[in-house]
Nucleic acid binder design. Structure first.
Lengths: 336, 336
DNA sequence: ATGAAAGCGCTAACAG
DNA sequence: CTGTTAGCGCTTTCAT
């Protein structure tokens, strides 16, 4: 119980005084201990421990010009869609001695711009943004601050910021190709909200292109398990005779699968279900979900490495394309 | 395109110089605009915009002694278990003008202590820790830094830190009580790793107490959907005649339900399945999962409000108990 | 209403 | 090896 509860936090000078050395010496035992006489060092370290001294991050930052803080603008952490990636980003950044501030945007461009400014205000040295479709406000803020920024979840080599992500359009095309191979002609496409979500838009574009000529009907719903459930109810009412349901995200597919089960529709006998994402749970649904694998964790790692390098060594990273691949499991089968 | 790409970031002095005023005036237009002559203010604001000046967070922090940064030590963001809470914490903190740094610990006490130190090093003013069982190292660090800290996911009024959470033991008891009401006597308990996880331990304690006298067998597995799948395989081999499976977290229950389905075991006819958590997906499993609702989002909000108040107004918050409640859905039924 | 100047806590020359 | 001292960028009296 050394807690001098009431006293203010001790600073470098306090330590120096009670250790009877100069502030420079204290600073040295903190930053390059080996340069300091063992005896003095021990004494100083003793005092530091005794006083419970902690260097002020602010003061360090002001001198070094570095905060070692990075910020991430993420739509939401409310589903596995982004939290896997954020988890991976954080773990990778630690290896570089960097910390991560998360800011959720709910796919609202205005909120995104506001939070970007807040991130800059707290002094982040780099930012992760999600997707490539942003408000002018955000682009302005990013441009004038000149803070290294990488865009994730979307690969686009021509984008003005380095992107680290997958080709959402191609992912959709892969799923559609599989559906067509299986002979499915009438497909219901279940997707989340379009506003502020370029990933969804790209997937829809890919779907439209791949399914050209076939009967394809779009169902917009919440990007959630519940959204999938609702979509199925709608679909069975509108298009009971479709061959397949294509969900633009596994999260909705979970709801679709379960609701179909509840309704007594046999997947894949009566209907194929396919999706995009391949979340950890997708391998264990009933039936196991056929889906296009998007390497969310790997994306987090790559993005973190790219931004870390940019921030640390001032090298603007090249865009990184992460290949997606179709994982055929039990929820799709040849049309009978 | 005002981007003087090569130049260094402008500072207060630069602004003052080009606006032909003193630094004090610039500082004023930034902090108390109304005190400054409209004309001067406009001019200064113009220069600020023109130069793309952004105040240094570090310098502000050094003066105010505030960083407006909070840190959260979270086991993982790899499942909905904590990401819902983190999402909610972040959203609440924004309302208080605070930012959140996330640090994942993988339920590893050592890593937790290390990350706590890192959080302090970057200057957080407050910390969220998960659970109440921590290494001495962490407790030391927390104590000497005297940084406001609240513990979440676990309610314990007697803990040395304010807790905001549920009574994990009671949650388990509620589930068991339901099972007993239904006449189930042989239950298989599926739980995640115990090491470093006091929530799990408390739930097991509650289970043991509530099920005293009944046949109850424990199955430890990964805290994941896959973990649930594996556990079922084990259970069906060991204890094929059990009446019920009690999962200590919904995440595992998802796997249990799906694997049972795959095996052709009818839930709830052949077997009841019950769990703890009530994640967004739990309402839509097949059959819908009977589970003890843990208000994860509300916990995030409460915890954030508590810590924000502590940090801002120096009022140590009281512990907050969040009631859990049994949500009976379709996965349990009277033993026949 | 505005300016001059003294710090805030620390790092980094530069001397000894 | 250790001390002196000049900043870092900004806020904040205290004058004017």
């Amino acid at each position: 119980m050394l807690g001098n509860s009431k006293k203010k936090k001790p600073n470098l000078r306090d330590v120096a005084r009670t250790a009877e050395v100069s502030v420079a010496t204290v600073s040295r035992v903190l930053n390059s201990p080996d340069v300091v006489n063992k005896a003095t060092r021990d004494r100083v370290e003793g005092v530091i421990a005794q006083l419970g001294f902690v260097r002020s991050a602010a003061a360090r930052a002001i001198n070094s010009g570095r905060t070692r803080l990075l910020g991430a603008l993420i739509p939401t952490l409310d589903s596995d869609i982004f939290s896997l990636t954020v988890n991976s980003i954080e773990q990778t950044l630690v290896e570089h001695g960097l910390s991560l501030i998360v800011a959720t945007t709910d796919d609202d461009p205005e909120k995104e711009a506001r939070k970007a400014q807040e991130l800059l205000d707290v002094g982040v040295e780099g930012i992760f943004v999600t997707g490539v479709d942003h408000s002018d406000a955000l682009n302005d803020i990013l441009q004038r601050s000149r803070v290294p920024t990488v865009a994730i979840s979307f690969y686009d080599a021509g984008y003005h910021l380095p992107t680290v992500g997958y080709d959402n359009r191609v992912a959709a095309e892969m799923a559609c190709a599989h559906l067509m191979e299986l002979g499915h002609a009438r497909v219901a496409v279940v997707h989340g909200p379009l506003s502020g979500n370029d990933r969804t838009q790209a997937r829809i574009d890919g779907t439209r292109a791949a399914l050209a000529g076939k009967s394809c009907r779009l169902y917009e719903t919440d990007l959630s398990v519940e959204g999938g459930v609702k979509a199925v109810q709608q679909i069975m009412q509108d298009t009971p005779r479709c061959d397949a349901i294509f969900c633009l995200s596994d999260v909705m597919a979970f709801g679709v699968l379960n609701e179909l089960l509840r309704m007594g529709v046999d997947v894949p006998r009566d209907l194929s279900v396919i999706s995009i994402h391949d979340l950890p749970a997708s391998e264990y649904t009933f039936p196991p979900l056929t889906t296009v694998h998007l390497p969310a964790r790997q994306m987090g790692r790559k993005a973190a490495e790219s931004l870390a390098a940019w921030v640390e060594h001032d090298v603007r990273p090249d865009p990184v394309h992460l290949a997606s691949r179709l994982v055929v499991r039990g929820s799709t089968r040849q049309r009978s």
